[in-house]
């Protein structure tokens, strides 16, 4: 497209047709190394890089700001200048494909993961995944969370076989790193630093309008993981009890309701009641 436009602009009189015009213009927007398009600038068409630069800045800066608004924890963790550089690169590699700025940046976690300079900061990927899930939860459609009273109407045998429908906002980020404490960077710098040896998991939910983040340890994260994957309540509790003595099933159910992680429940008629072994659980966590 650009090559064609050269042929046309070289011929003295004819201005490029409009499709070529917008192609030239948009190529130059994201690439400041390209010259500004001929015939675009001052009144007589004299190129005016500073004038054209207003558009370059509008585009690039507004997109960097949009990315920063979506990933404030990442921005605060890496510091302003590092984030600017990485965001600038992201904007040229993954410009938005939709006019909805609320979904811009959805490839950022993967982008960070594959960025060689950040290879030794793998924790950033988990933080980015959490921030992406947070924003998705913020905008996703409304759904009423499950009421605890609903669970009362089932017989003890039925409660074993209950499965749950995941709320559209719910997302569990499993991490080897202190993802909850790192996520907190969006609010304030933690005064005492963050213990990087600690593993945390982050449950993101939106029971009504506000998004909640819930830090979970291995045991409770595993319980939620099983529930959100559609395992029965009996299996989830059984597996969790097996995994750790500190697991309190009553508190787990209370948390399931408080966080609004699920919307409805039904008795599963498939009677395969398998309990996950510890190895399987660990494998699950490795995959993330």
């Amino acid at each position: 497209m650009i090559r064609n436009s050269k042929n046309i602009t070289n011929s003295k009189e004819a201005a490029p047709n409009y499709i070529i015009r917008t192609s030239q213009f948009s190529s130059a927007l994201l690439n400041p190394d390209l010259e500004t398009p001929k015939g675009v600038g001052e009144k007589d068409g004299t190129p005016a890089p500073k004038r054209f630069g207003v558009y370059r800045n509008n585009v690039v800066v507004s997109l960097i700001e949009a990315l920063k608004a979506a990933y404030p924890s990442i921005a605060n963790i890496m510091g302003e200048k590092n984030f600017q550089q990485i965001a600038r690169f992201y904007v040229s590699e993954h410009p938005p494909r939709s006019a909805m700025m609320q979904i811009f940046g959805s490839e950022f976690p993967q982008f960070i993961e594959n960025l060689p300079p950040l290879k030794n900061a793998p924790f950033l990927v988990d933080v980015a995944r959490a921030e992406k899930a947070w924003l998705k939860a913020y905008h996703t459609h409304d759904a009423k969370p499950l009421n605890l009273e609903t669970l009362r109407k089932f017989s003890p045998e039925e409660t074993m076989q209950l499965t749950f429908t995941t709320h559209p906002a719910s997302h569990l980020i499993k991490s080897k790193y202190p993802v909850n404490d790192l996520f907190d960077f969006r609010n304030e710098k933690p005064e005492n630093g963050v213990d990087m040896q600690m593993s945390q998991h982050l449950l993101i939910t939106r029971p009504h309008l506000s998004v909640f983040t819930t830090a979970l340890n291995n045991t409770y994260a595993n319980f939620f993981d099983l529930i959100l994957r559609g395992e029965t309540l009996g299996n989830a509790i059984g597996t969790s009890l097996k995994m750790s003595d500190e697991f309190d099933a009553g508190q787990a159910i209370s948390l399931l309701i408080q966080t609004g992680a699920v919307t409805s429940t039904k008795v599963n008629t498939n009677l395969d009641t398998k309990v996950h072994t510890k190895t399987q659980i660990q494998n699950n966590f490795k995959h993330t």
Partner: peptide
């Protein structure tokens, strides 16, 4: 205009 070839530039761009 703000979109060209499926890329959204997030700005109000001018036209001839």
């Amino acid at each position: 205009w703000s979109t060209h070839h499926d890329i959204f530039y997030n700005d109000l761009l001018p036209l001839p």
